[in-house]
Nucleic acid binder design. Structure first.
Length: 603
RNA sequence: GGCGAAGUAGCUCAAUGGUAGAGCAGUGGACUCAUAAGCCAUUGGUUGGCGGUUCAAAUCCGCCCUUCGCCA
């Protein structure tokens, strides 16, 4: 059983939707920055929980299931299993990666829905929707096609014409047909619950205004801009659909909650699930009702309104009612977002990513040919933190060879090889350090503080850049002290140089570990540590009354970060300590990969 | 159409009113422990365009162009 004594940090990661593979844009936008933050906070000894899961419900999943002649559940599971495989290979340390299709999520989502209703933030309104008499069910807009009343072209969806771009009113669509069986649907009156955003808008606006100085401008201004220009309006949060979380009200069990309303609740339900899987069912409070808790939402810019407005409004509206429903004697409100460091998008070779045109670099496909750390490196130095960025194979190749291999990997290799050769695999004893040695170590020490500042501000590319600058500084130091000369004259002098460089590498290993965990662990073992920095990822099948679902869990195990100590600081390397013969951390890539990879695009 | 973000060296990005900088690429050099890696030096910019405010603008204001996201 784990004890939670330290500062709670919840890393809430966007939930991938179960109808498309994950590409580098998804990774750099949300999933990778989340893991970098999670690992950093773990190193600080904080009580980190990184959570997410597959967004499994909604119309697109049912559309695909219909097309493939299978069930929505099978469709979501196929993607879900692939997502987990990718995250595991890339080393994304989700404490729990689950799904919205679980009994637990249903319970939590329904409790939250009822809390909002009881607190007066839901209302019912009726509208006209397409209904298929043949199938005896309502049809989503995208199931109905007809002729556009603007441009006269057939094949227009009932809500929008792809030909002329006009938004359409369903009633006016000419000759509507169901895409499923070609039958003619009719418009019928139907009722739905709406989230009363008008009632919550002042509280949402005030909350955002208080965070103007440290949230990213894109997030704050977009949300406030909408509130201040148009104001917020009620939004329907239920659907006439069977694949989803049923509305928990008598007479409404034919309807489901709308995915955008329900999936974000996963940030809460996954923590509840994590707690119960670890036999500490009350532990979710540590992150969700504790005023000390910091919740960071890692998302892409397309998700900003759902998090900075709608989810925020849900949390404010629920207040302590959810805790009450969970049986708390002294119920507390849910914790509101500490930060939402949304990223922009990543393009590919100058063009927008497009799954349907195969204009994408797919995560799993990439990892069949390359290692995870080079991908993590390139995606971080190119992270779209302030504007859209671009994946360019030439640049990937250059940065891998010039920066990872040449500056950092080669530094570790040259120093450890030299030390291994002349000191028989033991850390040399430096005696008293010289001025230049102390100066180098002082600047790495300063590096911890610099990188820390960037990490706390979620400026990950600047943080990694600082790490590389420090690695270059060690290279410069070596060139000046030139231990390969010293060794010929006076081995004691060389011992000082090599000890200093090894010490620097040991520290840089920590600084780089949130970004490059696989190679930092390799260094950890080369340097003779018996315990790894981080734990490992495992999967498990969970069966509940609803279904069976796979979860991925992070297990701290016996790792250094499991102890809850602050490891983000220089620790002295013991002279005489045994270490092993090193091998290169990174592979040098051949220039030919650029053309090969480019040839695959768009095929 | 409304809201928002972005446009700076060949490329990727810094620089919140005070002489436009860094890394990579390019060019030149000395060295050899290391994955021919590393180190030193160096070329390169009408800051998307036009206008305005100011002693001073990449930065503030207005209009326009281009790209992207959300909403209608």
């Amino acid at each position: 059983m784990r004890c939670f004594m330290s500062e709670p940090v919840l890393i809430a990661v966007a939930w991938p939707y179960a109808n498309a593979k994950i590409h580098v844009g998804n990774l750099t936008g949300a999933y990778l920055p989340a893991d970098i933050l999670a690992r950093y906070h773990r190193l600080r000894g904080r009580d980190v929980l990184m959570v997410s899961g597959t967004d499994s419900h909604g119309t697109p999943v049912t559309v695909r299931a219909d097309e493939e002649g299978t069930t929505p559940e099978q469709v979501y599971k196929r993607f879900h299993v692939e997502f987990i495989e990718l995250f595991q290979k890339l080393g994304l340390t989700y404490d729990i990666y689950t799904t919205t299709h679980s009994r637990n999520h249903f319970d939590v989502a329904q409790k939250l829905f009822l809390s909002l209703k009881e607190n007066g933030y839901l209302y019912i309104e009726s509208s006209k929707q397409w209904y298929s008499p043949e199938q005896e069910r309502f049809l989503p807009d995208r199931y109905v096609e007809g002729t556009c009343y603007f441009c006269g072209k057939p094949g227009a969806r009932s809500d929008q014409c792809d030909n002329c771009g006009h938004l359409l009113e369903a009633e006016k669509l000419i000759d509507p047909k169901s895409k499923i069986d070609g039958s003619t649907p009719e418009l019928r009156e139907t009722s739905h619950f709406y989230l009363d955003l008008e009632k919550l808008q002042d509280q949402v606006g005030d909350f955002l205004r208080e965070r103007q100085d440290y949230w990213r401008p894109n997030v704050i201004k977009q949300s406030l801009g909408q509130i201040e220009s148009e104001g917020l309006h009620g939004r329907p949060i239920t659907r006439d659909l069977s694949w989803g979380v049923p509305v928990p009200i008598e007479g409404w069990d034919e309807k489901c909650m709308y995915v955008w309303f329900e999936a974000v609740i996963g940030y809460l339900s996954s923590v509840v699930e994590w707690a119960s899987l670890h036999d500490q069912p009350e532990a979710w409070h540590h992150w969700w009702t504790n005023p000390e808790s910091r919740t960071l939402y890692c998302i892409g810019k397309d998700n900003i309104p759902f998090h900075a407005i709608i989810w925020l409004a849900e949390l404010i509206g629920v207040s302590e009612s959810f805790d009450e429903k969970m049986g708390a004697e002294d119920p507390k409100p849910l914790v509101l977002p500490y930060d939402i460091p949304a990223n922009e998008f990543m393009n590919l070779e100058g063009r927008k990513l497009s799954g349907s045109k195969n204009w994408a670099v797919w995560g799993l496909d990439f990892l069949e040919r390359y290692d995870p750390d080079p991908m993590r490196y390139y995606l971080t130095v190119n992270m779209p933190e302030t504007r859209d960025s671009d994946w360019d194979w030439e640049e990937f190749y250059q940065r891998n060879n010039n920066e990872l291999v040449a500056t950092w990997g080669n530094l570790a290799n040259r120093v450890l090889s030299f030390a291994y050769k002349y000191w028989e695999g033991r850390v040399p004893d430096p005696g008293e350090l010289r001025e230049a040695d102390r100066a180098l170590l002082a600047s790495i020490r300063e590096g911890f503080a610099n990188v820390e500042a960037h990490m706390e501000a979620v400026k990950l590319r600047a943080a990694l850049q600082e790490g590389m600058r420090l690695a270059a500084e060690v290279n410069k130091y070596l060139d000046t002290s030139a231990p390969w000369f010293e060794i010929k004259e006076d081995k004691n002098q060389a011992a000082k140089s090599i000890y200093t460089a090894m010490q620097a590498i040991d520290w840089l290993k920590v600084i780089f570990s949130p970004f490059l965990p696989h190679t930092s662990e390799q260094l950890q073992s080369f340097l003779g540590y018996e315990v790894p920095l981080f734990g490992s990822l495992v999967t498990q099948e969970i069966t509940d009354e609803l279904s069976t679902h796979r979860v991925m869990l992070y297990e701290p195990g016996e790792s250094m970060t499991a102890k809850g100590e602050d490891l983000w600081k220089p620790v002295e390397l013991t002279p005489g300590k045994p270490f092993s013969k090193p091998s290169p951390l990174f592979k040098k890539l051949d220039a030919s990969i650029v053309e090969e990879e480019r040839a695959h695009l768009g095929q």
